[in-house]
Simulated scan of single mutants.
Amino acid sequence: MTILHLALADDWAKAAQAGEYHVSTLGRTLAEEGFIHACADLDQLRGVAERYYTGVSEPLVVLTVDPGVLTCPVLLEVAPGTEEAFPHIYGPLPVEAVVSVTPFSR
């Protein structure tokens, strides 16, 4: 399974220093949301960017996550109001689970 996460570049830089990433989605932490929102493919990622990140002017990056490195559950769940299943990471994201970080452009 592919797991992608759209992140503010600054949030990722802080996580890279700390060793773990704790941002669920724009403006919400793992502690607040209970999981880290993610996408299964680029189409889902683009949809998330269009729905939630249109007003963001800060640089964004796409984190590609190796689920085999995660020590927490990853569940495919259908978001309210949609029929699509999205991967949700139920714990902090260790930086070593991120296999690539690429700039996101619309």
Rank of each mutant, 00 (worst) to 15 (best):
M1G: 11
I3L: 04
L6S: 10
L8K: 14
W12C: 14
A13L: 11
K14G: 09
A15S: 13
A16Y: 01
A18D: 14
G19E: 11
G19F: 03
E20Y: 13
H22W: 01
V23D: 10
S24P: 03
T25S: 15
T25G: 15
R28A: 15
E32V: 08
G34P: 00
A38N: 07
C39Y: 01
A40R: 12
A40E: 04
D43I: 02
Q44N: 13
Q44I: 05
L45F: 03
V48F: 08
R51E: 12
R51Y: 02
Y52P: 14
Y53T: 09
T54K: 12
T54V: 15
T54H: 12
G55V: 02
V56N: 08
S57H: 10
P59F: 02
P59H: 09
L63R: 05
T64Q: 13
D66I: 05
D66Y: 03
V69Y: 03
C72A: 10
C72E: 08
L75F: 01
L75C: 00
A79N: 02
A79T: 11
A79H: 14
A79F: 11
P80I: 00
T82A: 10
T82S: 14
T82G: 12
E84Q: 10
P87K: 07
P87C: 07
P87I: 04
I89E: 08
Y90A: 05
G91S: 06
V95H: 06
E96W: 06
A97E: 09
V98Y: 00
S100Y: 07
S100E: 07
T102L: 00
P103D: 11
F104N: 04
F104G: 01
F104K: 07
S105Q: 11
S105P: 02
S105H: 12
